[in-house]
Amino acid sequence: MELEAEKSLIQAESSDGPNSNSSDFVAHVRKLLFRRMLVGIRDGRFFLGTFHCMDKQGNIILQDAVEYRSTRRSSTSPMEQRCLGLILIPSSCRSSCHVGCSIEEQLSLLKL
């Protein structure tokens, strides 16, 4: 398992090239990997999971994701949740995206 992970890392390095030539933004997003991410989509549901991957089109993969869903149309209604596991959220239906972080970090993010 570990070996496989290593292999994929090497592959990633070789195909993407070293991190040196990627932009600040990309580097920052890379730092968000493995953090808890909350993605809202257009039909009003939220998905909370570990940030696993993002491509150029902005499609996001979350690991161990939980779906949160209102039981009513009004936003104050109670939420129900269920576990989904590995999910792909196409950028087309994403309406919001938040990452859990400390207040200081939030401020530094705002500066970007």
Binding site: E6, S8, F25, V29, M54, D55, K56, C101, S102, L110
Partner: peptide, 28 residues
């Protein structure tokens, strides 16, 4: 911790990514 909005950051990063490039960790 708080929920920090990262949508603008992701959008900027997407622009900077090359075609076919992914942002992912070791376990991908």
């Amino acid at each position: 911790s708080v929920w920090a909005d990262v949508s603008p950051l992701l959008e900027s990063a997407c622009k900077d990514l090359r075609d076919g490039e992914l942002i992912h960790g070791d376990n991908f």
